[in-house]
């Protein structure tokens, strides 16, 4: 987040007031990235789907990167995915030990970075079936994946 010097605060407030006065109904605030993170903080994993081409979009955007449409809606996902690739980040035990980084292909199409957290980092394999849960990393909400707890989950 950009830190503005204190003396610019009144300028920022003025700009926000101006925006509210001229509120454009086609703009939804906050933006897609903040909306995604706010959903996660409520334990909800939602991605976007394009109303024009029907394809799913991740990461959250204002424009569909498939067809260019600006009509994107938030939708629930099955949470089912497959490990596309995986790596083990080596870290000293006193700093928390090794951890997994994987790229997960969601059933709906998009690929995202995450961690598979219920098996040892080096036992995560490409092609492994995984399911999403909203958990925490460093006190921040994050979509994590489990290998063993399969099944549908309501978001």
């Amino acid at each position: 987040m950009l830190e503005l010097p204190a003396y610019t605060e009144h300028l920022k407030e003025g700009i926000l007031a101006e925006h509210q006065k001229n509120n454009n109904e086609s703009i939804e605030n906050p933006g897609p990235l903040q909306t995604y993170e706010e959903n996660l903080s409520r334990g909800e994993f939602r991605i976007q789907q394009c109303k024009d081409c029907g394809q799913h979009v991740f990461y959250p955007r204002l424009l569909c990167h498939h067809c260019g449409s600006n009509l994107l809606k938030w939708v629930a996902v099955s949470g089912r995915g497959t490990v596309y690739s995986t790596a083990v980040v080596r870290q000293r035990p006193e700093k928390g030990g090794d951890y997994n980084i994987s790229l997960i292909d969601l059933e709906e199409g998009p690929r995202l970075m995450s961690r598979v957290v219920d098996v040892d980092p080096d036992e995560v394999t490409i092609g492994m079936a995984v399911s999403a849960h909203v958990g925490m990393i460093d006190d921040k909400p994050a979509v994590l994946f489990y290998n063993k707890e399969q099944g549908d989950k309501e978001w």
Partner: peptide
């Protein structure tokens, strides 16, 4: 970005993947 929270140790991890 949406990847920050996972601490991917860039730039090495993308190449490992």
């Amino acid at each position: 970005t949406v990847e920050d929270v996972y601490r991917p140790r860039n730039p090495i991890t993308p190449y490992a993947l």
